[in-house]
């Protein structure tokens, strides 16, 4: 399944909408879209995952990289809209407390 990624700009914030499965085959595309966003001019980067039904460790690893980039460049890095299955993967890896995860209706 291909991955659709759309980046929206809202003042100093960027919202990254992701639709599809984030796997070893598609996570490089997500990484390529995310990495340029982490600059000191950007306040917050939100990755919206409502449209993601499946995510494997390569997807998680890409988001861990995002977390590392955000610490280096001083951005807030937020994940939102996690489905129960995607959230479960974060919980299995015990990463749900490390990321800034907001609910769909937050």
């Amino acid at each position: 399944m291909s991955l659709k990624i759309k980046v929206n700009s809202e003042h100093q914030n960027r919202v990254v909408e992701v639709v599809g499965d984030v796997t070893i085959m598609t996570s490089p595309d997500l990484r390529a879209e995310l990495k340029p966003l982490f600059t000191s001019e950007i306040a917050q980067i939100e990755v919206k995952l409502e449209g993601v039904g499946f995510m494997d460790s390569s997807g998680i690893a890409t988001l861990v990289e995002g977390l590392q980039w955000s610490k280096s460049s001083g951005n807030r890095f937020v994940l939102s809209g996690l489905s129960p299955t995607v959230r479960d993967v974060f919980e299995l890896a015990k990463l749900d407390t490390i990321f800034d995860i907001v609910d769909n209706n937050a």
């Binding site: 690893a61 890409t62 299995l92 890896a93 015990k94 990463l95």
Partner: peptide, 15 residues
């Protein structure tokens, strides 16, 4: 160790 130092490697086996 991930709590203090999140790394991208080794997550597959962890899962």
């Amino acid at each position: 160790t991930l709590k203090d130092n999140p790394v991208a490697g080794g997550l597959g086996m962890l899962l």
